[in-house]
Design a protein around this nucleic acid. Structure first.
Lengths: 222, 222
DNA sequence: TAGATTGTTAATCGATTAACAATC
DNA sequence: TAGATTGTTAATCGATTAACAATC
């Protein structure tokens, strides 16, 4: 959160919003709607219509003046742009509680993500079943990545093991890493890392609530 | 991620960065360092020294020209500003896998957060122990909130139950909600909600990696 | 056609960075 | 004192919003 990086001249935030638009288009499509205006979709996504059109404009033009957008067409074109028209294979490293929770998260499947490998260093975990995927020994990670197409690596190991796991992923050509360990990973510039810093999010949430309370009581007492 | 809301005239992103500074100051303090410059701390936090000083400037002045900042002093003042000088009590609603994973997340404790209640609607879960906290029936949530000080509510229930849980939290005066269900909660303006939309994060990560690959191959082929 | 809504440019707003005087 | 580094203002940069011509 709160980052201005650009990916090939497109702000990262635009990419995030595209994934939100995609989600709502999926809902509209499941719902049988065949038409949507920028105003309607923007409202669902929590942005302005202007911003929605501006965001789409990075990728082309998708609608019809006076009509809006055809839901199925916009959905399939955005799906393609995002890359969700092809199955995305994931490996998970770290089969602890958080890892197991993510492995069983159904919403990933709904968007075309598939967990193809789970790894852990604990001998007691190896061989166990995590959401239908056998846990492998982490020493076999290199070999697995050599023989399987993998698009994303999810790191849910303890903080002191995270960098070496990231190094192994990078060495084997993985260019998308989702990191749940509380540190900034060092990776080459061609690798995308998304940091899910849970504690920082929790801290900033309570901080924001505190400031809100304070500004409220300041106003009411004046 | 990617939001410009302001809390009492301070951008939300500043609050998030404050929590990052706080984390690194904790590390420096544990490490026995007693001095740090804006340049050093900014580097650890992944921001510019200018931005760090600008961020601190929202809250006061904390350093000494020609010297930098005393680690212990800056840490304790920021801790106080954020509100981490007092224990933050959390309740968790939804004792599924994700809920259990969060309940056992040690880093929350290290920053002063304490889980005081866990709730679930599944009769088979009620009475179970989750990280040392007994799971209560969700029908007892109102009563619990009436008799216990709670600062944060964490929602890890299925998407269709999330709004009613949020309503119950709000009704009982909780003003900080961390929502892991994939929808935008409707809450009164005085309530802060942090949305942890895992799937959107995953989607935008793979999208960013795809664009990076494409811009790379475009450059190399020209 | 008249009405609606897009695509796209221009204006505004806000956040980041640069600069430097103050001062330890 | 000379050197270093903050606090704070000003300049720049980038993202969001407004506006409207194009056009279905």
């Amino acid at each position: 959160m709160g980052d201005n990086t650009k990916i090939g001249s497109i702000p990262k935030r635009v990419l995030y919003r595209m994934s939100i638009y995609h989600r709502h288009l999926q809902h509209l499509d499941e719902n049988g709607d065949d038409r949507v205006s920028s105003k309607e979709l923007a409202e669902k996504a929590g942005v302005t219509a202007s911003q929605l059109r501006q965001d789409l404009h990075y990728f082309g033009s998708f609608g019809q003046q006076g009509y809006g957008y055809r839901v199925d067409e916009l959905l399939s074109r955005i799906r393609r742009i995002i890359g969700l028209d092809k199955q995305q294979n994931m490996v998970l490293i770290g089969a602890g509680r958080l890892g197991q929770a993510l492995a069983s998260y159904e919403n990933f499947n709904k968007r075309g993500f598939k967990l193809v490998g789970v790894f852990d260093s604990d001998p007691d975990m190896v061989g166990a079943d995590v959401s239908g995927v056998p846990v492998r020994d982490i020493v076999d990670l290199d070999d697995f990545l050599l023989h399987n197409r993998v698009d994303v690596g999810i790191i849910t190991v303890p903080v002191n093991a995270a960098q070496s796991v990231a190094d192994a992923l990078v060495k084997n050509g993985i260019d998308a890493i989702w990191n749940f360990a509380p540190l900034r990973l060092t990776v080459p510039p061609e690798v995308m890392v998304e940091h899910a810093h849970l504690t920082d999010s929790l801290v900033s949430l309570t901080f924001a609530a505190k400031l809100k309370r304070e500004s409220r009581s300041r106003h009411s007492s004046s």
